[in-house]
Computed example of a mutant assay.
Amino acid sequence: MFVPDAHHYKDLDALNLPHQEVWLPVSTKTGKIERIHGWWIPHDHPISTMLYLHGNGGNISVEVKARRFRELGFSVLLIDYRGYGRSEGNFPSEATVYQDAQTALDYLVKERRISLKKIVVYGHSLGGAIAINLANQNPKVAGLIVSSSFTSMYQMAARDWKFRLFPIELILTQKFDSVGKVRSLKMPSLFIHGMDDTLIPVSIGKALYEAAPQPKQLLLIPNAGHNHREAEFDKPENLKIVQDFARRAVKASLSSN
């Protein structure tokens, strides 16, 4: 479920991206302060600010999407959950990654003075489940983009559970019940899924999309696998869908009460 990686593979200086390192304090149950590490990548005239939440493996140093999204006109904040990358803390849990995502959103609003109405939350894979929870808890964000994600951890685990006589629900403590939360969304949503995803089949991505309320949009990418690092995702027509979605979401959000 969690595969934290502390090794940094690439620095944004190598990508020639203007950025700032950020360190965000978060309190543990014992009162100890731990710091989340992230990169703030500003755009001079952003169409939106994107909070990017990565999946269960790697860390932000492998998220080359940051350059792509800035080129599309986004300011981007990427963070590593505690236990990942340079972030402090021990092995993560469902509760701690939710807390880390909320801390990052609070940073954008309180420190960067960015209105929730101008923020789009983007989550990939496990990050999609984290993004859905965050959007559910913060209904005034402009939009939500969920990439290659799943309905619930129970349904994902049950697909591969070999010990059928032993109920998986007895040991599954991390629920990530996205399909239960997605029904309550209050903002536009865009669901993206590779049609050749062998880790999370496209049928599961479709089921998550179908559970979401309108307005919503589904982008299925032929020949694309789970991580969307393939050229298929970079096709101009796909990138334009992401860009246009953010523009519409922010426009609708700013015009609402």
Rank of each mutant, 00 (worst) to 15 (best):
R70N: 12
M187P: 01
M195R: 05
N138D: 09
L239T: 10
K10Y: 09
N133T: 09
Y209H: 12
Y98R: 05
D44K: 14
I204M: 13
W39T: 02
H226R: 03
L24Q: 10
T30R: 13
P46D: 07
H7T: 14
L134V: 11
G85L: 06
G123I: 00
P167K: 00
A211K: 13
P188D: 02
H37G: 11
V3F: 15
P139H: 07
S115P: 07
F91V: 00
Q137L: 12
S75L: 08
R68D: 14
Y81E: 04
D196R: 12
E34Q: 14
R183L: 05
G31S: 09
V146S: 04
P4L: 09
D197Y: 04
Q20D: 12
D13F: 12
S148G: 12
P236K: 13
T28E: 15
Q137W: 03
H193T: 03
T30P: 00
Y98P: 00
L190W: 01
H43V: 06
K181M: 11
I192K: 01
L72R: 05
L108V: 04
E21P: 01
A6D: 06
G57T: 14
Y9N: 10
P42D: 06
T96E: 04
H228L: 12
A104C: 11
T96F: 01
Q243D: 05
A129T: 05
K10Q: 12
T173E: 10
W40M: 04
N133P: 00
V120L: 07
V121I: 15
M156L: 15
D196N: 14
E111G: 05
V76E: 04
D5Q: 12
P92Y: 13
D196K: 14
F69G: 02
K65C: 02
R159T: 13
L51C: 09
R183G: 00
Y107H: 11
N16T: 07
G123L: 01
I130M: 06
V3T: 11
A135W: 13
L72E: 01
N138H: 15
L24K: 09
W23C: 08
M187C: 08
L53I: 07
K140E: 15
E169K: 15
H54N: 01
P222L: 09
E230F: 01
I114Q: 11
S93I: 07
L172C: 09
Y81G: 02
